[in-house]
């Protein structure tokens, strides 16, 4: 009797716990299909209109409920975000993996110190990094724009890739590389045939993570994006400033879906690799 009661209490806690985490996100998703243009909290009827307007299709909604600049600028921001995320994630994956390999392979003095140095940018307050990058770019005279966003993102994305690839390397039997050399393979062949396949899931996972973090970054990007180069999060922020309109729910929901897909892919790749040891 008693145990059933406490079990139920525990279940209730579990439900509340997940509601606490997911209710706000779930609501946005629901609201994005609510046709009520005035008050999104009152359900009127199901509609795809908010999604249609984002993509520039005509919809039977009043102009007042839409953001003026909608489609063109939004698509420009999405494009910027995708370009920045692709380049920054690729570059930081390359650099982060190389750094992880270097610290794994060579007996470096002060190795712990260098590892800490690699991880620090990740833990640095975004606002500090943002300001620092802004001041740096301005003082050496680089015009703010897509390039500065890419460089800025790399500075902290490398940390994430470094950690994931390092963990993967730490789990690798060091005698595998020795066995390869012992069997007559050149260092390059060893890397191509043994090391890279072993760490590839980590590298891919790092790439995915770096990509969604870059897509999602607001604070740092806000400081270093300049006037013309607006990424999606910065654009959304500027829209919100002029009031919360139903359209924003649709944008947020799509961004959410996109992140979930990329993150799931990353998790799937890592899980598959762990199963294979």
């Amino acid at each position: 009797m008693h145990s059933t009661f406490s079990t139920r209490l525990l279940s209730l806690y579990g439900v509340l716990f997940f509601l606490f985490i997911y209710l706000p996100i779930g609501l946005i998703f629901v609201y994005s299909f609510n046709s009520n243009p005035i008050n999104m909290m009152v359900w009127q009827s199901f509609t795809f209109d908010w999604y249609r307007t984002i993509f520039g299709f005509s919809a039977e909604v009043t102009e007042a409920t839409l953001y003026v600049e909608s489609t063109d600028q939004l698509i420009g921001a999405v494009q910027n975000s995708l370009i920045v995320a692709s380049v920054a994630a690729s570059l930081s994956t390359l650099l982060g993996t190389a750094a992880a390999l270097a610290l794994y392979r060579f007996r470096v003095r002060l190795e712990g110190f260098y590892r800490a140095l690699m991880m620090t940018p990740m833990m640095m307050p975004d606002i500090v990094l943002g300001i620092a990058l802004l001041i740096f770019f301005v003082s050496i005279g680089i015009d703010l724009g897509v390039t500065t966003i890419m460089i800025g993102h790399c500075t902290f994305l490398i940390s994430y890739v470094f950690i994931i690839v390092s963990a993967r390397l730490a789990g690798m039997d060091p005698s595998l590389e020795e066995a390869s050399a012992d069997l007559g393979a050149t260092p390059f062949t060893t890397f191509r045939r043994i090391t890279l396949p072993r760490i590839l899931p980590g590298v891919m996972g790092g790439l995915m993570l770096a990509f969604i973090i870059s897509m999602d970054d607001l604070v740092i990007t806000y400081f270093i994006s300049g006037v013309d180069a607006t990424t999606l999060p910065v654009f959304i922020l500027s829209m919100i400033r002029r009031g919360v309109k139903p359209e924003i729910n649709a944008i947020a929901s799509m961004l959410l879906m996109f992140s979930i897909i990329v993150a799931s892919l990353g998790i799937y790749l890592r899980a598959r690799s762990e199963k294979r040891l």
């Binding site: 039997d173 595998l176 020795e178 066995a179 043994i194 294979r276």
Partner: peptide
């Protein structure tokens, strides 16, 4: 090798 070091992939 003591751990055999077979290539798992």
């Amino acid at each position: 090798f003591q751990s055999y070091a077979l290539f798992p992939h």
